[in-house]
Computed example of a mutant assay.
Amino acid sequence: MIASITGQVEHVGLTTAVVAVGGFGVQVQATPETLSGLRIGGEVRLDTAYVARKDESPLLFGFRSPAEREVFEIMLGVSGVGPRTALAVLSVLGPDDVHRAIAQGDAKAFTAVPGIGPKGARRIVLELADKLIVPDRPAPAAAAPVEPWREQVLEALVGLGWNEKDAARGIADALAGREELGASGDVPAILRTVLAWLGAAKAGARTGAERGA
């Protein structure tokens, strides 16, 4: 594994740079922020991650710090996240923001990354909840745990025709004061409860509209 490279910058492009190392020009993929700090003819040291995948040319990714490389490599373990998406996450959020979003269960933060929708963002938060741990930096005390059943219930409601915003609000309202049901993780029971609440809320709204007509 190529853990780092040190050499003179020969070229800086929009997404890549070339660094002269031992007589070879080594091309590295990097974030715009990393590339903006490079100067042709200047010396640079980059932490690197080598990615070789079946049916694809191997790529070398360069980072300004070990923290960036750590987040990149852990992101590659998420289902559906490839190296370019992982690099895009670092381009938009940075390692500290990624740690913060995971600790707080903030899936919305990842939807700011091109190519990551709400479903993919929730998957990232769920799969990285117990993997991205910052030494000597405890998660905020107010951070709520990410329940593994929530995505399943949300997807089921969206599949039944509810928009994601209303479905998410319905889950929160239907389970208010019923923490034991959420703690049980019983997806069918939770889904039935939320559907009953949403149905009652919809019927109430319709009755109110008819009375006001």
Rank of each mutant, 00 (worst) to 15 (best):
M1W: 13
S4R: 07
I5N: 15
T6L: 08
T6K: 11
H11C: 08
V12A: 02
G13V: 10
V18H: 11
G22F: 14
G23I: 01
V28Y: 12
Q29G: 12
T31Q: 08
L35Y: 10
G37Y: 14
G37V: 03
G37K: 03
G41L: 03
G41S: 06
G42N: 12
E43Q: 15
E43M: 14
V44W: 04
V44C: 09
V44Q: 06
V44S: 02
L46S: 09
V51N: 06
D55H: 05
E56N: 12
E56K: 12
F63L: 10
F72T: 11
A86T: 03
L93T: 01
P95L: 02
D97Q: 15
H99Y: 15
R100K: 13
I102W: 04
I102L: 09
I102C: 05
G105S: 02
A107L: 04
K108Q: 10
K108D: 11
T111V: 06
A112D: 06
A112L: 14
G117P: 15
P118H: 10
A121N: 07
A121P: 14
A121T: 10
R123E: 01
V125Q: 05
L128N: 14
A129Q: 15
L132T: 00
I133G: 00
D136Y: 10
A139C: 03
P140V: 00
P140K: 01
A142E: 12
A143V: 05
A144K: 11
P148F: 01
V153L: 03
V153G: 06
G161T: 01
K165C: 03
R169V: 05
I171Q: 13
D173V: 02
E179C: 01
S184R: 02
G185Y: 15
A189Q: 13
L191A: 10
L191K: 13
T193M: 09
A196Q: 12
G199S: 08
A201E: 09
G204D: 07
A205R: 04
R206L: 11
T207Q: 14
E210G: 07
G212C: 05
